[in-house]
């Protein structure tokens, strides 16, 4: 009798679990299908994933009525801050996620989510640019490659189609602070990108790898892991560590406000904080994880890639979330650039 009860209980929970789902909103090419399948096999939760190609596109989409449709998004650091300020995040307590303790110390008390109450680490990496070495064999460790390119590269450059990273890299080139309200600095920034645009071939984030592997571009702004993938796909490219510095970012599994399946979301976060799973993700995306105990599962080629091991003394900068009255000026520069 007891045995019968137990089996029927298991059957009940299993059938209830199989009806559970998770709506994930993630960057493109950022999640291996095998890992989602594994999650479904372990928990019975089916995952539906949509993708976006920039932090700003994520925000725009959530603003356009998608808040409440997704459980989890994967915004970068500054976008977590913006979403938090806009009141678009849900929250949890650490004990709701058993693996919360697996978060690496340095990623626990982050300024964009003090104490990790809305988000957990996904991947972190850097943004600079990569150059095709068949086309240009000079020094590439200078942001001038993008903003006043040598003759060989002019007209063959792709830049990321996102104001956050592109204008920040331009600010680093000019050595001006982010979120500045200084008119001369903003004018100089505007002039720089407007002039540089003449030597750019295209704007695109999701195309960033393809333009390098297909040869449509000879240099392009790109994220380190994406650059490693392009190199593995046969492009003779090198990822640059400009002397002005690289942008560092962390993307985070973030619980959204009004998540329709909050329990599934927390289960997924817990799953992704499992060292083995975090390592599987890292092996796929080829950035770095923020979970303790991943090392033994990591593919040495990923762990030791030149894209994941910046030279000693590389300067790093996080993108800042500007206040509204300043952001509108950056928006104006961006729109002016893309006309």
């Amino acid at each position: 009798m007891n045995k019968f009860l137990a089996t029927s209980l298991i059957a009940l929970t299993a059938s209830a679990a199989s009806a559970q789902e998770l709506k994930l909103y993630n960057w493109f090419e950022y999640m291996p299908q095998e890992l989602l399948d594994k999650f479904t096999a372990e928990t019975g939760i089916t995952v539906t994933m949509d993708t976006y190609d920039s932090n700003e596109a994520l925000l725009a989409s959530l603003k356009a009525g998608k808040l409440g449709a997704y459980d989890i998004a994967v915004p970068g650091d500054y976008m977590v801050k913006i979403l938090g300020d806009e009141g678009m995040l849900g929250s949890f307590t650490p004990d709701e996620i058993p693996n919360h303790g697996n978060i690496e110390e340095q990623w626990l008390n982050v300024p964009f989510d003090e104490g990790r109450k809305s988000s957990v680490p996904y991947q972190w990496g850097s943004t600079s640019f990569a150059v095709n070495r068949d086309v240009f064999d000079g020094d590439i460790n200078d942001t001038a490659i993008i903003f006043s390119p040598p003759e060989e590269l002019a007209g063959k450059i792709n830049v990321l189609d996102t104001s956050g990273e592109t204008l920040t890299l331009a600010s680093m080139h000019l050595a001006i602070p982010q979120c500045t309200s200084d008119r001369d600095q903003l004018k100089a920034l505007n002039a720089l990108v407007t002039e540089a645009k003449a030597s750019w071939a295209s704007f695109g984030s999701d195309v960033a790898k393809d333009v390098l592997t297909s040869g449509d571009a000879a240099a392009g702004m790109i994220w380190n892991g994406f650059s490693a993938k392009a190199r593995n796909e046969g492009a003779n490219i090198e990822y640059a560590y400009p002397k002005q510095g690289v942008i560092v970012w962390m993307d985070n599994l973030t619980l959204l406000k009004d998540a329709p399946n909050r329990d599934s979301a927390l289960a997924f976060m817990n799953f992704m904080l499992e060292p083995e799973n975090a390592a599987a993700l890292t092996n796929f995306a080829q950035y770095s994880g923020g979970v303790k105990g991943m090392a033994e599962f990591l593919d040495p080629e990923v762990a030791n890639s030149p894209e994941n091991n910046p030279p000693e003394g590389t300067k790093t900068v996080f993108v800042e979330a500007c206040p509204e009255e300043i952001q509108v000026m950056y928006d104006a520069i961006w729109t002016n650039l893309k006309k």
């Binding site: 190609d53 695109g204 195309v207 297909s214």
Partner: peptide, 15 residues
């Protein structure tokens, strides 16, 4: 996703 939006998403990352 419909077929065109799925294809659009895919070709952005390379044909």
């Amino acid at each position: 996703e419909t077929l065109p939006t799925a294809i659009f998403g895919a070709v952005k990352q390379g044909i």
